[in-house]
Design a binder for these strands. Structure first.
Length: 286
DNA sequence: CTCCAGGCGCCTT
DNA sequence: AAGGCGCATGGA
């Protein structure tokens, strides 16, 4: 499958628990430890324990999605062409809502490396151990809302999440008690779903849109963060003064029926090209 | 040392 | 309604 790139996808900041060694990706999905790698025939999936049905992996990777039609729906302008060219094979995943929501509550004002560290600590301390093949590092499930709901705020702060701890705890308890139903989000319109999610403490428009896009599959959800602001300004409004309101309106109207996908391409393009520029300037200085 | 990182909530105008 | 500021923590 030449138009699916595991590396672009699993390292594009939409999930935080997959690791790569020599082109081989390992991670935990539900209670299963998995290994993913590219082969000439497609993507090979290995599990640590016997799996009757790999459908849950297909769902997670969205293997059935027709990427070409998504790319064709993007606006045909220079920034999108550049982003598509530099992110070949980048896909959106379909993640489990609770893990996605909890992870993005922890993402506020943190760099992706740090988010990964916090999530790893949380799983190691409060997740259940899963079976891994001999020689592989230990791995854990993502702790359930029930599990976190029973903890003290100090237990969460010990995972280095700082002021985000009370938010995560309150959301875990809202879900554990049934006061908030994550499954009920599925049947709602985008606007209703967003309105519902932002009632949760620590969840604003940006985090809500991340969960709507990365977990629930709302294709037009368009998370707006500092990177996207930077990308839109630099790529679409160079050397022009643009208000936040104008940027939001542009984001909501310019990118078509798969706007969220376009957002992920711009986000990843911005981050990777930015890093290359940094590496170059650093290298030329030394 | 200072600055800032995939924001959000709360307190000012 | 819109704008400013504090919040924990760690890396550059």
């Amino acid at each position: 499958m030449s138009n699916y790139d595991l590396g672009q996808t699993l390292a594009s900041g939409q999930c935080f628990r997959w690791n790569c060694v020599d082109g081989v990706w390992t991670g935990v999905l539900g209670r299963h430890w998995l290994k993913l790698e590219h082969a000439v025939s497609g993507i090979i999936v290995h599990a640590a324990e016997p799996v009757a049905d790999f459908g849950f992996v297909e769902d997670f990777l969205r293997l059935g999605e027709d990427l070409e039609s998504v790319l064709l729906s993007f606006p045909d302008d220079p920034p999108m062409r550049a982003a598509v060219a530099s992110c070949r094979g980048l896909r959106l995943l379909r993640q489990e809502p609770w893990e996605c929501l909890a992870s993005f509550i922890l993402s506020a004002t943190k760099q992706i490396v740090q988010i990964r560290q916090i999530v790893a600590l949380l799983c190691e301390r409060f997740g259940d151990p899963v079976t891994v093949p001999p020689g592989e590092p230990s791995a854990w499930t993502f702790p359930s809302a029930d599990r976190l709901a029973g903890l003290a705020e100090s237990d969460l702060r010990a995972c280095k999440m700082g002021f985000r701890a009370p938010y995560l705890l309150a959301v875990a308890r809202a879900i554990a008690t049934g006061r908030f139903d994550l499954e009920a989000i599925r049947g709602l319109s985008l606007a209703e779903a967003r309105t519902r999610l932002v009632t949760l403490p620590g969840v604003g428009p940006k985090i809500a849109d991340c969960v709507l896009l990365f977990a629930y599959g709302f294709q037009v959800a368009f998370p707006i963060d500092v990177w996207i602001i930077k990308a839109l300004k630099q790529l679409y409004f160079p050397k022009r003064r643009v208000s936040q309101k104008q940027l939001h309106h542009f984001a909501a109207t310019h990118f078509g029926p798969h706007a969220g996908y376009a957002q992920q391409y711009l986000f990843h393009y911005m981050r990777t090209s930015h890093r290359q520029r940094d590496t170059k300037t650093t290298a030329s200085r030394t």
